[in-house]
Amino acid sequence: MTALHPNGVNHLALSTRDMKGQLEFWCDVLGLPLKALYWMHGVDGTYHGFVELAPDSYVAFVQHPDNAKDVELGVTHAGGPGEPVTAGTMQHVAFNVDTFEDLMALRDRIRDRGVQVFGPIDHGFIQSIYFAGPEGLALEVACGSAIPVEQWVDPEVQDLCGISTAELEALKQPAEFARPAEPVPQPASDTGMPRLMPEDHYDMVMNLPDQVVWDRMSETTPPVAAD
């Protein structure tokens, strides 16, 4: 049986107050084609934009009218690939290219557009370059795959994280899941578990039947008719 787990990033959604500026950077500096730009479904006054990394992987942007404009390093943004930032926020994001030659070619494209690039650096299992994006983004491009876990789990760091030998083995080999014949019901609300949205109306929204959510909230009509 094939292991069941997410197999990539369908889209990474980044907050913005300047959709045009973000699209110009990602399309011109990084060479990613624009694929979608429309009113975000179910969110009043909010734009959604998508640029393509691959046919099944995108970077998306969300321009909400109430997005805050202030960047506070160490709180809202890290400001660098090794700097502190509030837990649960994006410290930095790294995108993939296939080869080291591709990495060097992309470094030169980025520099050609006037953006400074730090690197390359060889981290052993990946090689990376680093640069900044609009609105305080800390970005990386890397090449490399198939990390040899036996070589890259440091026992000292494992101990500092409070991970036992048994727990480590469970992390390296997650339990398989056999989907039951009937859908798994929504678990009871538990404030100790991650929550998708603020408390207002949380339980009401999360306890809507799946079919009701599908029927009422799906929107599949493109804003522009096909030729």
Rank of each mutant, 00 (worst) to 15 (best):
T2I: 09
A3K: 15
P6H: 06
N10W: 08
T16R: 13
R17N: 11
D18F: 07
M19W: 01
Q22H: 01
Q22G: 05
E24S: 14
F25S: 13
V29P: 14
G31Q: 07
P33Q: 05
K35A: 08
A36N: 12
Y38R: 14
H41I: 10
G42S: 11
V43L: 08
D44K: 03
G45T: 03
H48R: 12
H48W: 05
F50D: 05
V51I: 04
Y58R: 04
F61I: 09
H64L: 13
P65A: 03
D66N: 08
N67S: 07
A68Q: 15
D70G: 08
E72N: 08
E72G: 01
L73S: 06
L73I: 11
A78E: 00
G82F: 04
E83W: 01
T86S: 10
G88C: 05
F95H: 08
F95E: 14
F95G: 07
F100R: 15
F100A: 12
D102K: 13
R107E: 02
R107P: 04
R109T: 14
R113H: 12
V115H: 05
V117C: 07
F118V: 15
G119R: 04
G119S: 03
G119K: 04
P120F: 02
D122Q: 02
I129D: 13
A132Q: 06
P134G: 05
P134Q: 02
G136W: 00
G136C: 06
L137H: 06
A138H: 10
E140P: 09
C143K: 13
E150G: 02
Q151Y: 12
W152S: 00
V157P: 13
V157Q: 11
L160K: 13
P174K: 11
P174N: 06
P174C: 05
E176V: 10
F177D: 14
E182A: 14
P183L: 04
P185D: 00
D190F: 11
L196Q: 09
E199N: 15
V205K: 12
N207S: 08
N207K: 05
N207A: 04
N207R: 08
V213Q: 03
D215W: 06
R216S: 03
R216I: 00
R216K: 15
P222Q: 09
P223C: 01
V224C: 08
D227A: 07
